[in-house]
Design a protein around this nucleic acid. Sequence first.
DNA 1: GTTAGTGTACTAGTTAGATAGAACACTAAG
DNA 2: CTTAGTGTTCTATCTAACTAGTACACTAAC
Lengths: 124, 124
Amino acid sequence: MQFNKHTSIYLQIADYMYDRILCGEWPDGQRIPSIRDMAVLLEVNPNTVTRTYTMLQEEGTLENQRGIGYFTAADARDQVLSRKREAFLKSELPLFFSTIGQLGLTMDQIRKAHEHYQQEHEKS
Amino acid sequence: MQFNKHTSIYLQIADYMYDRILCGEWPDGQRIPSIRDMAVLLEVNPNTVTRTYTMLQEEGTLENQRGIGYFTAADARDQVLSRKREAFLKSELPLFFSTIGQLGLTMDQIRKAHEHYQQEHEKS
DNA sequence: GTTAGTGTACTAGTTAGATAGAACACTAAG
DNA sequence: CTTAGTGTTCTATCTAACTAGTACACTAAC
C-alpha cells in the first residue's frame, strides 16, 4: 500500500479499514486478517497495525478474541457510516464549498465532473 | 490559531498563508508579517514559522530581503491558485465523489447544501 | 554610531510515530 | 501433548516535528 508522507500510517490504515467495511468487503461480525497478515499485506510493521486495531477496538468498530483474531462488530458498518456522515457534513462539505469558491468553480461544473466520474466508474 | 493534532503545524501554517494570498489579504509583492510577529500571532515557535516561510520561498511563492522581511512573489496568487486547482481536480474531487457514493448522498442533495452554505456566507 | 527590527544559524531537549526483534499466553487442530 | 497461528507485551532504536534559547548579520531610521 502507498502511504501519504504527511499523515500517520496507522491513521491511513484506519481509513483503509473503514473503506473495507463500507464497501462490504468486511461484513459485520466477520473475522478480518490477523495483525501479522495485515502487516505483510500493507508492508508495514506489525506494531503499527496493532496500533490501528487497538484504536478501532476502543471505538467499538472491532472486537477481538485472544488467540483467535479480530472481528468486525455486529453494527460496524452502521457505526462507520454514521461517523463518516457526521464528519462529512460538519467538516468536509463546508471546506469543499469554500475551496470551490476560492478556485472560482461553479456547482454546475462540479455536477458535470460528477457525471464524468460516474461514467468512468460504472464499468464493472 | 487552532491546529489539527494529526498534521504538522508548519504545513497547517502554509495552508493558512495560501488562504491569505487567495482571499486577497496579502496582495502580490507585498510584505507579510515577520517571522517573530507571525509566531506570536499563531502562538507557535519562531522556528516553526521559519520552516513554513522557507518552504514557501523554495516554492517561489515568497521572496525575502535579509534584514527587511518576507514578501509575496509578483505572481504569488496565480501560483497558489493553479497549484490548488490541480490538486483539487486530481485528488480532492475524485475523493469527494467517492465519499458521497459511500454515504449514499446524491448530487442534488449536495447542490441544495451548497445553496444553504452560500446563503449563510453572503451576509457580509 | 546607536538602536530597533529584521532574517539566519546554531545547539539542546522533548514528543510522536515507526521500525526491529524478542518473549509470552491463549486457542484450535492434529 | 505438540504444533501452528493468534493476540499481547515488552525493550531498543531511529526519524520527523516542535519547542526553547542564544547568537550573529543585515537594514533602516534616528
